[in-house]
Amino acid sequence: MTAVPLPYRVVDTRPETADTVTIRLEPVHETLPSFAPGQFAMVYAFGVGEIPVSVAGILPDGGLLHTIRGVGAVSGALYALRPGATVGMRGPFGTSWDLPLAAGDDLLVVAGGIGLAPLRPLVLAALAAPQAHGRLNVLVGARSPEDLLYRDELDGWARPYRGVAVDRPSAGWKGRVGVVTTLLDEAPFTPAETTAFVCGPEVMIRATARELLHRGVRPDRVLVSLERNMRCATAHCGHCQLGPLLLCRDGPVVGYDRAEPLLAVREL
């Protein structure tokens, strides 16, 4: 499951934005062990290469959703796949969003750009068990309205709060303009009893976490998903080091109490 990829078939592709697609995969023969929200798979485009991609959806039949932005050689090849194509899949790898840790807490889900993809299965899990926690807040930041993912799903995520902020509005945009943290004033949560789940560009993660700590959320209750170069995903290749962490093993989801001092060092 972890050393050699299993073939999965692309059964559906759904364009999200101009450069981003969500693909639905089903096992051709064998199925990988089940994924938890926040974990990632190594997705192999035949002959091109393999990249880590967090699961954007965990389907009951063993299928998986991955949202892929086609920016590099491998992600570009995956972006271009059509239904019927086969990819190789290894996983599951890494740590997951610890929803049980947040039992009874208000939930604060903060996403920047494609960082919403790894948070989607967490939101769905929280929506499925509303009695297990307090208020669910989903805060989404994007460059422009056209860069928003899962547009037809977002409205259903307001339990009670769902906010969207964009950097560059386009004609007709009636929502917030600015960075995602500007939404925090609107979201109903009690900082001392809140668990936050943050994913996005590193600069957005740091700004969000700093703001949350300032408002009184405990550092170990700010869970962030970090990214570094990954080649093996099995803690053998050394690429994903962030100081003492091997992010394929000790991450990608890390408490900000551990992440903060590491992100504070330039080029660590």
Binding site: V4, P5, L6, P7, V28, F46, G47, G84, A85, T86, V87, G88
Partner: peptide, 11 residues
């Protein structure tokens, strides 16, 4: 890995 005529991948 080999890709067959039908696009199937065998690893």
């Amino acid at each position: 890995a080999d890709r067959g005529p039908d696009g199937e991948m065998t690893v």
